[in-house]
Design a protein around this nucleic acid. Structure first.
Length: 830
RNA sequence: GCGAGGGUGGCGGAACUGGUAGACGCACUAGACUUAGGAUCUAGCGCCUUAUGGUGUGGGGGUUCGACUCCCCCCUCUCGCACCA
């Protein structure tokens, strides 16, 4: 308890933390069951990938979540707070190959180690609900869901160009390609034609977009990112006939109001019609050379910003169905095959890209929408005009306003049969096939006779080979394992082959939050009785890097699970807190920068409570946190000051006295501060989890108590001192649970602190009797006075005018006006 | 380019619906206790100035008795999207 070399006492965090951790574990203090008589609260932090050891980001994320869980418990909620492991994935495979072992072995070792680290932090999880997604008990039900989705038509197989990462040797979903590179290894992604399985997330595009409106508890930033990713736009799909040919070209436009300004048409280089149009013509060679150039450049240079707009004339024309005008067809490098129809009607007067293109190739620029008070001349315009206005050169639509013309033109196309309103999304279906070993096998069998046959539900799970002791098969991909591939067809019993792709690991994390409600349910993926009590997640906490990937997939899965009858909610996470990164020296911690702080060492040196306290104190949760070792010492100092105070005042604290009715002097002042602090801390947590200001308020209260109690003539009454110390410990207990529990015991309490309710504040006790009123002259602070709280405005004016300093400033000027702000200030205007 | 969020002491960060700018902590300075102190305690700490006073929340303008807070213009940083027709 006391350091040999010093007379200063330090609390022994090692013993204390071990003591309380084992108590909590042995007594299963944080295990919960459904209880319809109590209000539930489900707080969840994004589960970790078992990479080996925890990092500061985990410490921060889980400390925040733990404060929420402990706080809500003290507010009387039945709190579900689970933890588990997102355990499939490539790092385990790489580590396994490197160490010549099985990914399972590596993964379970990591889990074991990290679980202990989390327990060392004193996090209040219900460990009975722990799940690891690589366990067959988990992916069994994922395969089951895959089959149910397959039956519903929400899973399908197709051959397409997919994103291929050569270094990871696997396909990536669109969401996993960041600036043309792999989200995991940052290698350039290639396009490659492959057969794969897809989840029909586009089926829910409209709902995924619309329901964002209901997520008022989500950060605006994340909502915006999802909105952009879904990328809805509405407009006209319209067919242009190729002149002197039977071919048609469909285009999509969001600006049908500009359709009379079309002066050419642009095709994507990959558009299937390109070759047909030029085949056998003198243009064939040049056009196809251009196509090759652009497509090969796209493969290599997808990170390149804004290449110059380029194109080539095909020699062919098509007809604008609105005015029967013939316009030339170009192939252009800026037209994307993946969006819309891969063909764009070009309106250079009103679209900047078309404008640049038209200038370059001397094509006509014909304004058809004239904004009020402006004249537009195609030959002299310097950029495209995209603002609304009145239509000209637009046949029967002339003089209409562009806003009205938009729908009128769509309707015209529809009634004449050459077009229709259309909604498009940027969102693509989710490709989930991965050519990797360490993932959930896709439960499909290929039979020469019967074709694609789903594995019958009763044959699930399709188990990933577990041969950890056979060195030759440790990490061999499934397609190279005959023992896995060879099977019999469930329909005809002939020899057949298993699908060897595994599922994207994001599939596991798309529904784990629901499985926590019934982690060992063995009759199906989810037990509706449990899910309907616990879901949705009241507070979800994690890094913003999952704003699109995981958070979009989970929303999609929730809707699917609802439609399959497993859930009665449409959105998984009612409130979302995206915590900032932990940085050091202004940069994200990384091995290459050498600025990594290992939580392990910190916990050994300062104790879990100190590490938790600092990570909560140094910044509000949504902002980045600059790690400072000196700051950690500050946090440690604070806890030790509280400890020494309790030691020094133990006589007074242990002698529990009746609460006195008359509280006066310093005691009154402390009592008031105490209740003001309860109020402040409660509001800081309730409003936006601003633990940093909550902690500083507790520090202020402690500082006030220390200095007031040192006053010999006017000492603090026992009951007030006891109440204040108790309050400080209760307020601190969600953040530094071991410390608070130990001090609570030290103060003579026989019950445990986590069973106590959160303190209530008393408005009367918190009310100020004396107020400091600021006296201003012309808005500048010149003096301050203390007055009784009930002093009225007139009295205040008098006090202000008779103040010495104020009088000096007024001097012989005339007072024009006096402004009195209740309980705050008096401003004299001269 | 589009979208979102920022810019406050040496540093991390406070400041409710406009009303004491810089809470709390770190660092720093001086002192105390000490054989010693990187322990602890006391005091100080935006900048200029001798106290008085002046000045100050990225820059410029405005509204107001009063602006970190509201309005306009500009600069800058971070993040996300980026030829989406």
């Amino acid at each position: 308890m006391s350091d040999n070399n010093s007379n200063t006492m330090w609390y022994d965090f090692k013993d204390i933390e071990a003591k309380w951790q084992s108590k909590w574990e042995n007594e299963k203090v944080y295990s919960v069951t459904e209880d319809s008589s109590r209000k539930k609260y489900y707080v969840l932090e994004m589960f970790p990938y078992p990479s080996g050891r925890i990092h500061m980001g985990h410490v921060r994320n889980y400390s925040i979540g733990d404060v929420v869980a402990r706080y809500k418990r003290m507010r009387g909620f039945n709190v579900l707070h689970p933890m588990g492991w997102d355990a499939f994935g490539l790092p385990a495979e790489n580590a396994a190959i490197k160490n010549n072992t099985h990914p399972a072995k590596w993964t379970y070792q990591s889990i074991e180690y990290m679980r202990n680290q989390l327990k060392q932090l004193g996090l209040s999880y219900d460990w009975d609900r722990e799940i690891a997604t690589c366990h067959e008990k988990y992916y069994h039900w994922e395969q089951f869901l895959f089959l149910e989705m397959y039956q519903k038509g929400l899973v399908y197989q197709k051959v397409t160009k997919v994103n291929w990462c050569e270094s990871c040797q696997t396909v990536l979903a669109n969401e996993q390609v960041i600036e043309g590179a792999c989200w995991r290894c940052d290698q350039q992604v290639m396009m490659r034609e492959m057969n794969g399985w897809f989840f029909k997330i586009t089926h829910y595009a409209e709902e995924l977009l619309a329901d964002l409106e209901s997520l008022s508890g989500w950060p605006e930033k994340v909502l915006t990112m999802q909105r952009n990713w879904i990328g809805k736009s509405t407009g006209l799909n319209c067919t242009f006939k190729v002149a002197d040919s039977s071919e048609n070209i469909a285009i999509f436009t969001t600006r049908p109001d500009t359709i009379f300004g079309v002066t050419f048409l642009s095709l994507a280089p990959e558009h299937p019609l390109v070759h047909k149009l030029v085949a056998g013509t003198e243009k064939e060679e040049d056009v196809m050379r251009f196509v090759d150039k652009v497509t090969s450049l796209r493969k290599v240079n997808s990170r390149e910003e804004e290449p110059v707009k380029e194109g080539i004339f095909t020699g062919k024309y098509c007809v604008n169905p609105f005015n029967n005008e013939k316009v030339p067809i170009y192939v252009a490098n800026f037209v994307l095959m993946e969006y819309g129809t891969g063909a764009v009607m070009a309106v250079p007067a009103h679209d900047q890209r078309d404008f640049e293109f038209a200038r370059k190739y001397s094509l006509e620029i014909r304004p058809v929408i004239i904004p009020e008070g402006i004249t537009l001349d195609g030959s002299t315009m310097e950029q495209a005009s995209s603002v609304p206005g009145t239509l000209v050169n637009s046949g029967q639509f002339n003089s209409m306003h562009s806003d009205d013309a938009l729908n009128a033109i769509i309707e015209h196309a529809r009634s004449r049969g050459f077009g229709a309103a259309q909604t498009t999304y940027k969102l693509r279906d989710w490709g989930i096939s991965r050519q990797r070993f360490w993932g959930a096998p896709i439960p499909i069998i290929y039979c020469d006779k019967c074709g694609v046959v789903p594995v019958p539900a009763e044959d699930l799970p399709v188990i990933l080979p577990w041969d950890t002791d056979t060195p030759s098969e440790k990490c061999v991909p499934l397609h190279m394992r005959p023992s896995f591939i060879e099977t019999t067809c469930p329909t005809c019993n002939d020899p057949a082959r298993r699908e060897t792709d595994t599922m994207d690991t994001f599939v596991e994390s798309s529904w784990y939050f629901a499985r926590y409600t019934c982690p060992s349910f063995n009759k199906g993926p989810l037990d509706k009785e449990k899910t309907s009590y616990w879901l949705g997640v009241d507070q979800y906490i994690g890094g913003v890097e999952h704003a699109i990937l995981h958070l979009l997939y989970s929303r999609f899965f929730t809707k699917v699970l609802r439609d399959l009858g497993y859930l009665d909610i449409s959105e998984p996470f009612t409130n979302l807190l995206t915590q900032g990164m932990v940085i050091k020296d202004g940069a994200k911690m990384s091995k290459s920068k050498g600025n990594v702080i290992d939580p392990h060492n910190l916990i050994n040196e300062f104790g879990a409570d100190t590490v938790r306290l600092f990570s909560l104190f140094a910044a509000p949760p949504e902002k980045d946190l600059e790690w400072s070792s000196q700051g950690v010492e500050g946090a440690s100092r604070f806890l030790n000051r509280v400890f020494r105070f309790i030691e020094a005042n133990s006589m007074q604290l242990l002698e529990r006295t009746e609460r006195q009715t008359e509280i006066t002097g310093n005691s009154r002042e402390l009592h008031r501060k105490c209740h003001q602090t309860i109020k402040k801390v409660t509001l800081d947590i309730e409003n936006n989890f601003h633990f940093n200001t909550a902690i500083s308020a507790i520090m202020e209260l402690f500082n006030a108590m220390s200095s007031l109690s040192g006053n010999a003539e006017n000492s603090i009454q026992n009951s007030v001192l006891q109440e204040t110390v108790d309050t400080i410990l209760l307020l601190l207990s969600p953040m530094v649970p071991h410390f608070a529990a130990e001090m609570w015991e030290k103060c003579g309490h026989t019950d445990s602190i986590e069973k106590r309710d959160w303190p209530q504040y008393d408005e009367d006790a918190a009310r100020e009797e004396l107020l400091t009123i600021v006296l201003q002259v012309n808005g500048k602070v010149r003096s301050r006075v203390e007055v009784q709280a009930d002093t009225d405005d007139e009295q205040l004016k008098e006090i202000a005018l008779s103040d010495d300093k104020i009088a000096r400033f007024i001097n012989d000027s005339t007072v024009k006006k006096i402004i009195v702000v209740q309980k705050k200030l008096v401003n004299i205007v001269i």
